[in-house]
Amino acid sequence: MSMSWKARRRWSILILVVGLPVYILVAWVVMSLIPRPPILVELLIYAALGIVWALPFKAIFKGVGKADPDAAPEDAPR
């Protein structure tokens, strides 16, 4: 069963407002616990962490930026 557009939109906002900052803090703490790697390796790690967080949520974010597909068209005559 797939989620409605409204539900996906609400979940995506929650993920971006709450989940992403928590993920950033966790990544920051984990990176501070390991010895500092060379700058290019560190840059690659942060780039990978920046991509990896969104992969599980791909289905939720898909199409959220577009208009509601279930809504009635605004230009339709009544």
Rank of each mutant, 00 (worst) to 15 (best):
M1D: 14
M1T: 09
S2H: 07
M3W: 15
S4K: 02
S4T: 15
W5P: 10
K6D: 15
A7I: 10
A7C: 13
A7N: 11
A7P: 01
R8C: 15
R8S: 09
R8N: 15
R8H: 12
R9S: 15
R9V: 12
S12L: 06
S12Y: 11
S12H: 03
L14V: 11
I15E: 15
I15D: 14
I15T: 11
L16G: 13
L16P: 00
L16I: 03
L16N: 14
V17E: 12
V17I: 14
V17G: 06
V17Q: 11
V18S: 10
V18L: 14
G19K: 04
G19R: 01
L20R: 02
L20S: 07
V22D: 08
V22Q: 08
Y23Q: 01
Y23C: 01
I24Q: 03
I24R: 00
L25E: 04
L25N: 09
L25Y: 10
L25D: 07
V26T: 09
V26K: 01
A27L: 01
W28F: 11
V29Y: 10
V30I: 14
V30P: 09
M31R: 06
M31N: 10
M31K: 02
M31E: 13
M31W: 07
S32P: 01
S32V: 04
S32K: 08
I34M: 13
I34N: 06
P35R: 00
P35M: 02
P35L: 00
R36A: 12
P37E: 12
P37C: 06
P37D: 08
P37A: 04
P38E: 15
P38H: 14
I39P: 07
I39R: 08
L40D: 13
L40I: 04
L40F: 09
V41T: 09
E42W: 05
E42C: 03
E42N: 12
L43E: 07
L44S: 10
I45Y: 04
I45K: 01
I45P: 00
I45L: 09
I45V: 13
Y46A: 06
A47C: 11
A47N: 04
A47T: 14
L49A: 06
G50Q: 08
G50A: 08
I51G: 14
I51Q: 07
I51Y: 12
I51L: 12
I51F: 13
V52Q: 02
V52M: 05
W53L: 03
W53P: 01
W53N: 05
A54M: 05
A54N: 03
L55T: 10
L55R: 07
F57A: 10
F57Q: 05
A59D: 13
I60W: 05
F61L: 11
F61K: 01
F61A: 09
K62T: 12
K62W: 15
K62N: 15
G63D: 14
V64N: 10
V64L: 09
G65W: 12
G65Q: 07
K66S: 14
K66H: 13
K66T: 11
K66V: 09
K66M: 12
D68M: 01
D68P: 00
D70I: 00
D70K: 07
A71K: 04
A71M: 03
A71C: 03
A71I: 02
A72L: 06
E74L: 06
D75E: 10
A76T: 04
A76E: 15
A76G: 05
A76P: 00
P77R: 00
P77H: 05
P77C: 05
P77G: 04
